[in-house]
C-alpha cells in the first residue's frame, strides 16, 4: 500500500478546499439557511407537524442529506475532472499508485469535505430548531456511507464527463430532482398511493428515510431496507469504479 500517495492525493484535494473555503463551506451553509427560512418558517408554519415532529425538525435530516449528496457529487466529480481537463492527471496515472489508492485519495477527500459541510449544516440547523438524534451510531453509518457512495458516483461522473456541461448535467438534471422528490421535505406517506409506489424506485428515498429514522425513529420504509438499498448502491458504484480502472475508460487511450 502506497500510503504516502494516498496522503499526497488526499492532502492535495483538501488543500484545494482551503483555497476555495468560501464556495466549499460557506455557500452551502447559506443556501441551507435559506431553505430553513423558506420551508421551515414560511411553509412550516402552515404544516406544523409531520409524524408528530415539528416540520422544521422534520426537514433537518433531508436537508442534510441533500447537501451531503450534492456536495459529495460536486467535490468528487470536479476533483477528478479538473486534472483530466488540464492534463495533470498524467502524473497520477504514471506514478506507482494503485487504482484503489487513487480512489481512496480522491473519494476520501471529497467525502470528507461533504461530511464537513453536512456537520456544519446540522449545527446550523440546531440554531433554528429543536432536534434529537435517537440512534447516533446509525446516523453516522448512513452519513458516512452516503458521503462515500455519492463521492464515488461523483468520481464516476468526473471521469465520464467530456466537458463542463456534462459535469453539471447529472447533478443538476438527475440527482437534484431525485433528492427533492425523495422525501427530503415531506413524508412520502403524504403522497397519493400511486406516487408512493413510483417514489419507491427513487434510491434517495431510502437514504433520507434511513437517515431520518436515526434522528426521530420514524421512517417511510424500514431501516433495514434503507441500509440494504444504500449498500446496493455503494456496491454498484464500487463495481463501476473498478470497471473504469480495469478498462482505463476515458483515462487511457
Amino acid at each position: 500500500m502506497n500510503l504516502h500517495a494516498i496522503r499526497a492525493i488526499y492532502m492535495f484535494e483538501m488543500a484545494r478546499t482551503g483555497r476555495t473555503l468560501f464556495q466549499s463551506i460557506v455557500s452551502p451553509v447559506i443556501s441551507t439557511s435559506l431553505y430553513f427560512v423558506v420551508f421551515g418558517a414560511a411553509i412550516g408554519s402552515r404544516i406544523s407537524e409531520v409524524d408528530g415532529i415539528s416540520y422544521g425538525a422534520f426537514i433537518v435530516p433531508g436537508l442534510t442529506m441533500l447537501s451531503l449528496l450534492t456536495q459529495s457529487l460536486s467535490n468528487a466529480s470536479f476533483g477528478i475532472f479538473f486534472p483530466r481537463f488540464t492534463g495533470t492527471i498524467f502524473e497520477v496515472l504514471s506514478s506507482p499508485v494503485s487504482y484503489v489508492e487513487i480512489v481512496v485519495g480522491y473519494v476520501g477527500a471529497a467525502a470528507t469535505k461533504a461530511m464537513m459541510v453536512g456537520v456544519i449544516i446540522l449545527l446550523t440547523a440546531n440554531l433554528f430548531v429543536d432536534m434529537r438524534i435517537e440512534h447516533p451510531a446509525w446516523m453516522v453509518l448512513f452519513f458516512v456511507l452516503t458521503a462515500v457512495t455519492f463521492s464515488m458516483l461523483g468520481f464516476i461522473i468526473g471521469i465520464w464527463a467530456k466537458n463542463f456541461e456534462q459535469l453539471q448535467f447529472v447533478p443538476l438534471l438527475i440527482v437534484t430532482p431525485l433528492t427533492f422528490l425523495g422525501g427530503s421535505f415531506y413524508s412520502i406517506r403524504m403522497l397519493p398511493e400511486f406516487w408512493q409506489t413510483v417514489t419507491l424506485f427513487n434510491p434517495v428515498v431510502y437514504l433520507v428515510s434511513g437517515f431520518r429514522w436515526s434522528f426521530y425513529g420514524q421512517a417511510d420504509v424500514s431501516v433495514g431496507l434503507s441500509l440494504a438499498m444504500t449498500l446496493v448502491f455503494f456496491v454498484a458504484c464500487l463495481g463501476v469504479v473498478a470497471w473504469i480502472f480495469k478498462t482505463g475508460y476515458r483515462l487511457k487511450s
Binding site: 492532502m11 486534472p83 502524473e91 497520477v92 506514478s95 506507482p96 499508485v97
Partner: peptide
C-alpha cells in the same frame, strides 16, 4: 496545476511516488 505553488506541486509529486 495553475493554482498550486511551486513547492506544493513538487512535494505532491514526491508523495505520489511513495
Amino acid at each position: 496545476e495553475s493554482f498550486e505553488t511551486v513547492s506544493a506541486t513538487v512535494n505532491f509529486s514526491r508523495g505520489l511516488y511513495g
